[in-house]
Design a protein around this nucleic acid. Structure first.
Lengths: 253, 253
DNA sequence: GCTTTACATTGACGTTACGTAAACGTTTAT
DNA sequence: ATAAACGTTTACGTAACGTCAATGTAAAGC
């Protein structure tokens, strides 16, 4: 039994383009090519195509299928196991995406009647998530996982009143800092007030305060573009000014 | 606050290539381009980029994100719901792939000691699966879902002895058919014996026999390349010969 | 024998969201 | 002044084909 591309394609439920592609990448060569340049496939090729399609159905990529079928020493069980790992990882990724989308949908739709408490919890979680996404890697590198996790825990355990206090305090830091910035003196009264407010604000996130850590964070505000962007958003140079003020406040450096 | 590509890229945790790409596809244009051709982004663009990255994290494709962000009338909740459906479908696909790979691994590894019974059940299921994959669509179109499901049910309920009988009978059909084919006479004794054996063989799969269905199937053996391939594999023309014999046997057409 | 129709061939581009590199101009730092 | 670091555009590569386009070949009907 010999087949041309289209005959074999019909037989296997694929298109002729696929067969030409498989020929092109050397996955399945025709038994021979006739005088007119037509690809002719024999029974051996039919069998091999079945094998290819079998692995393809499992989601194995063509390159791997090629390895499995062409090198007799290739460990197909091992290949399938690796493939399974890839599938499992992909599924985990999907699970996370789905959970995220559903969370977002719930929040956006607002169909569920969130209690104030739940809403607040969601806000806190969002704060933490956003923070993790933006700065997670750097902060964890600098301060260690434990510190960061403790900070996140502290946020989670905040009451709504505390949360609002923290937010208001954060805004006040910015306000006073801006005023102080206009004086130009990081050692002046206003700048030192800003530094002190900043210390108080940290109290909401850190489980214990140290001058070293405070000064370190101030430096990071300058070094990390993303922190810098936050403090500079009102006026350029505010991040540096805050650092200078905090250095004086803590007596460090 | 203004940013060049790399500054904004660092701020957002992406590469400058991504920003140029987003510019190229019109997803995020810079606020302006300076005299040297540099892209300059302002605070508005920073905010929009955050939005883009938010949807991107949910796995939404860039084209959809563009729609969501550019047309204010666009229903983002609806878009997210559609997206969720896509994710769920993808997850189902993955589940099926994983189940299949694991089944294959179990079979290949042979680590689990399958009882004869389990092995046999797996064989039957494989038979059905293979049949569904190869011919499922056409058969279901021709005979209807109900018939096909009944047939699959019948296979599932076979005993091992019956299964072996059916297999042996199937082989005998081919053998006798081949002998008959050599006589060239579809009305001859051998050909009619083949047709009768074929009817008996059908008894293992069909829950009731009719001459019309038998003749219809015979015609399909000729019309469908894949059935044809099965009967022609020993010798070309056998599918037609079998059809002729069955037509005579059933007295149809 | 001729024409239509069906099927074959080889390019080559399109798909997604960028990575990577080349070739070249600009800004910043030393 | 020069080098490093950054900016630009152009363009190829990715996975597995789908989809033309241009053109040659085989089969079938008149």
């Amino acid at each position: 039994m010999e087949y041309t591309v289209q005959q074999l394609a019909k037989l296997a439920g694929i298109t002729s383009r696929t067969l030409r592609y498989y020929d092109e990448i050397g996955l399945l060569k025709p038994a021979r090519v006739n005088a007119s340049g037509y690809r002719i496939y024999g029974p051996k090729e039919v069998d091999q195509l079945q094998q290819i399609l079998f692995y393809r159905e499992l989601g194995v990529d063509l390159e791997t299928i090629k390895q499995i079928l062409t090198s007799p020493s290739f460990d197909d069980v091992q290949a399938l196991k690796q493939h399974r790992e890839k599938l499992l990882a992909e599924r985990r990724r999907l699970e996370a995406l789905i959970a995220n989308v559903e969370k977002t949908l719930l929040a956006k739709e607002g169909r569920i009647i969130m209690s104030d408490k739940e809403k607040f919890e969601a806000f806190k979680q969002q704060l933490i998530d956003e923070n993790e996404r933006k700065y997670g890697k750097e902060i964890r590198e600098k301060y260690g996982d434990e510190q960061v996790n403790k900070s996140n825990e502290k946020v989670k355990n905040m009451t709504q009143a505390q949360y609002e206090e923290a937010t208001k305090l954060g805004e006040e830091v910015l306000r006073v800092l801006h005023e102080a910035f206009l004086t130009g003196d990081p050692a002046g009264e206003l700048a030192q007030k800003a530094a002190d407010l900043h210390r108080q604000w940290l109290g909401y996130f850190w489980d214990h305060y140290s001058k070293e850590a405070h000064a370190g964070l101030a430096q990071m505000y300058v070094d990390d573009e993303r922190f810098k962007a936050y403090y500079d958003k009102k006026q350029s140079g505010m991040a540096e000014f805050l650092r200078d003020a905090i250095f004086i406040y803590t007596g460090k450096k």
